[in-house]
Computed example of a mutant assay.
Amino acid sequence: MYVNKKTPIMNILSNLHILLIISSLNVINSQIIQDSCTSSILQNLNAQIFFDTSTLICSNVWSSEGFILRTSQAGPSLWSFVLSAPNTNSYVAIGFSPNGGMVGSTAVVGWVANDGSATMKKYFLGGKTPSQVVVDQGNLQIMNSTSSIISLSSRIYLAFQLVINQPSQQLVFAVGSNNNQAPAPPSFRLTVHRNQISVAFNYASGQGSQVSTSYSSLKRVHGILNAVGWGVLLPIGAMIARYLKHIGSYWLYAHSSIQLSGFTIGLAGIVSGLILNDRIDINVAKHKIIGLIVITLGCLQIIAILIRPSKDSKVRKLWNWYHHNVGRVLIVLAAFNVFYGVHLAHAGSEWNVTYGVFLGIIVTIALSLELRLLTQED
């Protein structure tokens, strides 16, 4: 009877003990998942990091992507780094740059493959294409005996030490695309990054500040010039040639002047784009190719005007067919590339809306005039 009377109390105590254990586990898991500069998460990783982490200075170097950098000087020519970032089934990278850009940097890159295996590699970023990013190359001397990569819950930790008097203060951080394709042997080739940032880092204070891009104005100028030149003036000039021939020879002067202005402004836009492409680390190959096709077609149109046959020539009909259709292709490609450029620049919906409204008005007017022209012919 004594045992039976105590059993409920023992059961209650046992259940409370289990609840306390579960609560403790939840606290631990919460600490593991949510890393921050105020957490003591590295204490849970001491057995997997092969150098002293007690003196590391913490900095939220890239808040929007959840990148946290901990670093300190471990010796006269030895520096310790621990980079923490969300595990997005792609790579995370820290690059040490000579000029703040990705090209010319040496980067430490880590990722977790689909099978759960974690890998950390050194890369030299010799260019903007994946083939120019060379694995196991670069001017950083990494202490391999102290390097480790840790996948813990929803985050990945890159721990390494550099043998160097003073690391570069121009740091570049990048995160790979969310395509669930980690770099694979034997090439370990990196795909184009989804996002990247340049940070001017102070090792003494542990403070990093994003390097503001000096090319935002150039981007804006590039977009405006191309939108106005190729995307606005050329369609207007084409409509004048198509629907205003009844006003006499004035249509030709207006058409020629507007098209030449559009070509000149558009050419300036493409030149600014080529300058921009040399100065920023972004892959815009398709946008660039379409732009070069547009400028080529524009040059062909000018050449066609210079060799335009007389009205009574036998080839005038063929020339008209060529001139009209090349112009139509040019206008369609230019309009598409304007929208595509806005998309690549993440310029915001207001740019698309503004140009889309204008294009809608132009198309509506063109359809109305085309119907009127067909009616008159009937």
Rank of each mutant, 00 (worst) to 15 (best):
V232L: 15
N178K: 14
L13W: 01
V112S: 08
M120Y: 01
Q181G: 01
V315L: 12
Q301Y: 07
S80L: 02
H222P: 05
Y322F: 15
I49N: 07
Y250E: 06
I307H: 13
I28N: 01
I302F: 11
V332Q: 04
I290M: 03
H193Y: 15
S151H: 15
I21C: 07
Q170H: 12
S205T: 15
N352C: 04
L125A: 05
A74R: 13
D281N: 14
L171Y: 02
Y203A: 09
R372T: 06
S72K: 04
D281H: 09
I265G: 02
H246R: 03
S168G: 11
A174N: 03
K245Y: 00
R194I: 00
I142Q: 07
I49L: 10
H222C: 06
I18M: 04
V134E: 06
I305N: 00
Y243R: 04
S153C: 08
W321K: 14
L371R: 03
L233E: 08
L25D: 06
Q132T: 10
L125P: 01
F96T: 07
V133W: 11
T264W: 08
S105P: 05
V284K: 01
Q376M: 05
T106C: 06
V163W: 08
I270N: 05
A47C: 00
V108F: 02
I236L: 14
H324N: 10
S97K: 02
L152M: 14
I57T: 15
L20R: 09
T354R: 08
Q161T: 14
A241L: 07
K128P: 01
Y340F: 13
H255Y: 10
S148E: 14
L306V: 12
I302D: 08
G266Q: 11
H324M: 12
A113L: 05
I303K: 03
K121G: 03
L297R: 01
S168Q: 09
S147F: 11
R70P: 00
Q141S: 14
Q170P: 00
D136C: 08
Q43E: 15
A268L: 15
A268V: 08
V92M: 04
A85V: 06
R189L: 15
T129A: 09
I331Y: 04
R194G: 13
I303F: 13
I240N: 01
C58D: 05
I247S: 05
Y243M: 02
I22Y: 11
K121E: 03
W62R: 05
P167K: 10
M10W: 11
G100I: 07
N99V: 07
N195F: 02
Q132H: 12
A113I: 01
